[in-house]
């Protein structure tokens, strides 16, 4: 990947992060921690990888993304707004009564949202259904799913994992956001899902482990996904919850708490300073 592209993606990811902070601050609720940990991934997917057209969000042959960890909706909305699916100023309506930006993604109300999610474990099954539909129709669109590591505790994830391998859904790529924290504490303590990579491998998936904040690693994972023609791909991403906002990084209390005025100002100052740096 060229250096200019990396710089460009960093900037995009920071715009998404800014959107996460704006949205959750104005909503006075929401999930910033797990949104910030996938900002880099969504920047890459929506700006490099996915074959999509924001002017035609329902195009039948588009690539699809299912945010199975639906509580990271602020990051998804940030990416979609940045990509031009809807105006960026609408972000401040997040979670408000008259807004189409629901607390968790609503495919009926929000352009660019491919599946309604929020109840953990369900999105990956829907992603399987979409990948199966592509296979049955001999269409070549790809389906991306983004899961949380806490979400892996849901049994349905493993029903879906079995299904995807059984039907050789090679058009499906699941990114696992291994940030190590869930609401009640460290995932290793609440309900240890490790080793995640070995579990997916045992279920018959093509598995890669990467640094989820490294664009070149994400790109390599996508190349490996394209190259694999008989298995679904799982990309286990080591990430930092709250990535990009110093006081949120690695802190479980920012899983489901919105920044207050002072926190908000610090976060915005940090990100805008970085954007100014990146802009040079």
């Amino acid at each position: 990947m060229e250096k200019t592209q990396i710089e460009c993606l960093k900037k995009t990811a920071d715009q998404i992060r800014l959107s996460v902070i704006h949205g959750t601050y104005h909503a006075a609720s929401g999930h910033p921690g797990g949104s910030l940990s996938i900002a880099d991934l969504l920047a890459y997917l929506y700006f490099v990888e996915m074959r999509i057209d924001p002017a035609h969000p329902d195009k039948p042959d588009r690539d699809r993304l299912v945010l199975s960890k639906g509580h990271a909706a602020p990051a998804l909305y940030g990416a979609l707004a940045e990509r031009g699916y809807f105006p960026k100023e609408d972000i401040k309506g997040l979670r408000k009564i008259d807004s189409y930006l629901q607390g968790h993604p609503d495919m009926k109300g929000t352009p660019g949202v491919d599946m309604s999610t929020g109840s953990l474990g369900q999105g990956i099954s829907a992603a399987c259904g979409m990948a199966l539909a592509a296979k049955l129709s001999e269409a070549d669109y790809r389906v991306f799913a983004v899961l949380g590591d806490g979400e892996l505790e849901e049994g349905q994830v493993w029903e879906a994992a079995m299904f995807a391998a059984h039907y050789h859904l090679s058009g499906l790529c699941a990114f696992i956001d291994l940030n190590g924290l869930q609401i009640d504490g460290p995932t290793a303590q609440v309900m240890n899902s490790a080793p995640v990579d070995e579990k997916f491998r045992a279920f018959g998936w093509n598995v890669l482990t990467i640094d989820g904040h490294d664009f070149e690693a994400i790109e390599r994972a996508c190349v490996a996904f394209h190259a694999c023609t008989d298995k679904p791909t799982a990309v286990v991403m080591n990430t930092t919850k709250g990535k990009g906002v110093s006081y949120m990084e690695g802190k479980v209390n920012w899983h489901g708490a919105a920044p207050k005025q002072e926190d908000y100002e610090i976060a915005v100052a940090e990100i805008t300073a970085r954007l100014a740096e990146e802009g040079r």
Binding site: D114, S125, C128, G129, A131, A133, Q156, E159, F163
Partner: peptide, 18 residues
């Protein structure tokens, strides 16, 4: 297979794709 929750989710994905 014996996995009804996933089956309904797969059905949702199929329907979302037409």
């Amino acid at each position: 297979g014996i996995a009804e929750g996933n089956m309904i989710g797969v059905a949702a994905g199929l329907a979302a794709a037409g």
